[in-house]
Every structure is written in C-alpha cells, then in structure tokens.
Nucleic acid binder design. Structure first.
Length: 271
DNA sequence: AAACAGGCCTAAA
DNA sequence: TTTAGGCCTGTT
C-alpha cells in the first residue's frame, strides 16, 4: 500500500484526534498508528518525525482525507485564541493536536443517536455490528473492513432487523432517522449551510435526537463551528471551572473546538 | 445485586 | 419550563 507523506504544519496528533471522543471507527494499530474506516474507505494514519503519513495516494488524499482531517484550517492559530480564561487555556494546551474531523453527515447522525446513554466500548461495538451486518465489505492491507451503511440501506430495514446490534430502544430511532434522510425529508447537506440554531432545531425534530446528540451532529457532521455539545463530562467541567450561567458563545466560532479541548482535558482526569 | 452509562421521551407540576 | 421515571443492554 502506498502512503502519502505530508509535512506537519500545525496541530495533528492521531492519538488525540481519534481518542477525543468525536469518532468511533478508528483504532490503535499497535504500532503507533491508527486504522479505521471513513467516507467508504479503510485507511491507516501515523506520524513520524514531523510528517503525517496517510495510506492512499495523492488523489485519495485530495478527494477524501484532506477534507476529512480538515487540513486547510490552522488549528494552532485557533487554539491560541482560546486563552481567554485559565482553565480553557490549560485545556487547549493539553489538547494541542486535536482536529475536528469532517465526518460523513449520516454516519455522524446515526453514531451519536447510538451513543446516548452508552459508554464508548459499547458504542463502538454496536457501530461495528451495524457496519458488518449492513455495510459493504472493504479490503485493506490484507484485512477485511466494512463501510458505514448508507441511510438508504438502513431505511429499508425494520427495527427488528437491528436486533443483532443489541442497541435496544435506539433501533427505532436509527430506522426513523434513516428514513427521514433517505426520503429527503431531512436534507443534511442543506442543513450544513444553515446557522447552528437552525440546524439544531431541524435535527431535534427527529425521534431520539435531543440537545446533546444534535450538537454533536452539527459539530462533527455539519462542521458548524459554534456548536457546543454538553454531556455529563462537560456539565461537570462547566460547573467546576466556569461561572454559573457561563455562555460558551464567548468562544465564538471556536466554541466547538473549545468544547473538544475541555472535554478531552476533563475526561483525561488532568483537572 | 443494584446502579450506572458520553440522553431522550413522556407525563406531571 | 423544569423535574422524575422509564427505557434496552452490558458492565461493575
């Protein structure tokens, strides 16, 4: 397999990118890199002496990974803007290397529906089961992988068909979201051009999509940068380190990135 | 064994 | 508009 080498210009740390909780299909490969499936392709990513290596050639990079890894945004510049208060500054410093992935919109929606009231190992397990049951088989460096099934594919199923996933009451949410997307009643591509609050309102019309899931989809799937998902970890961090009634809109367009730094920092137990 | 996990929905104040 | 309980399932 061919790899493309990119000189690292700013923040890019595979461990942080893939372990900061934004995605579920990348795993450490045991030799310092990560393998995963995204945008219908399996890939491997690692860094070595100041360079980033991504499987696939120039063309695949231009078509897929450059956008997926948000390579045309300078994260170190954004990060340094987040020094407005001490805690955020420490979190940003600690999280240097995180980038917000430009994930497939439907995959983000479906994945974060699954994530509700679940821990990461189980989220990953359910998503892998979904992909191996209904995704397309991919071959990469001698191993088999599966793409994330399309909304159209899932829309054709019934909740009972998802029993193999063992995802409980979420099955019904997945099917109905898939049908909204596949039918075109919910146009995720069009939503990506809307404001954060408009996109949130649309997404929250879906069954099983509340504030937290909607914010994750808006940030990780629609790349609307001022989304600010608040889960139990964020609630704790906000309560302990920010004034009551703190409004994350003070971070402006970097709110989503600030959220990732704070989330990653507080979850790492660094305090 | 009982409680909880990276929420959401519904019913009831 | 805020709050309590229930929800599938797996783990501790």
């Amino acid at each position: 397999m061919q790899y493309i080498q990119i000189e690292k210009k700013d923040d890019f740390d595979p461990v942080k990118i893939f372990e900061c909780g934004q995605c579920f299909r990348w795993n450490a490969d045991g030799r310092g890199g990560y393998v995963g499936v995204a945008m219908g392709r399996a890939a491997r990513v690692y860094t070595e002496s100041g360079s980033i290596f991504i499987s696939g050639g120039e063309e695949e990079y231009a078509d897929v990974w450059r956008g997926y890894f948000d390579m045309d945004r300078n994260y170190s510049v954004l990060r340094k803007r987040l020094g407005t208060d001490d805690y955020t500054a420490r979190a940003a410093e600690f999280g240097a290397g995180i980038r917000i992935l430009k994930q497939d919109r439907w995959e983000a929606l479906c994945s974060f529906i699954i994530s509700q009231c679940n821990n990461i190992p189980r989220i990953k397990k359910i998503i892998e089961a979904l992909c191996s049951a209904f995704g397309d088989e991919l071959s990469f460096e001698g191993e088999k992988y599966h793409s994330f099934p399309s909304a159209e594919r899932i829309a054709a199923l019934e909740p009972e068909d998802l029993a193999v996933l063992r995802c409980g009451y979420r099955a019904e949410y997945i099917i109905s979201a898939a049908r909204e997307v596949a039918s075109g009643r919910l146009d995720l591509d069009a939503l990506a051009g809307k404001s954060c609050s408009e996109a949130l309102a649309e997404l929250k019309k879906l069954r099983g999509v509340g504030d937290k899931v909607a914010n994750c989809v808006v940030l990780f799937g629609l790349q609307i940068p001022d989304a600010f998902p608040i889960d139990v970890w964020m609630k704790k961090a906000l309560k302990e380190h920010y004034p009551p009634g703190f409004d994350p809109s003070v971070f402006g367009d970097a709110a989503g990135l600030a959220q990732q730094y704070i989330f990653y920092y507080t979850r790492s137990g660094q305090e």
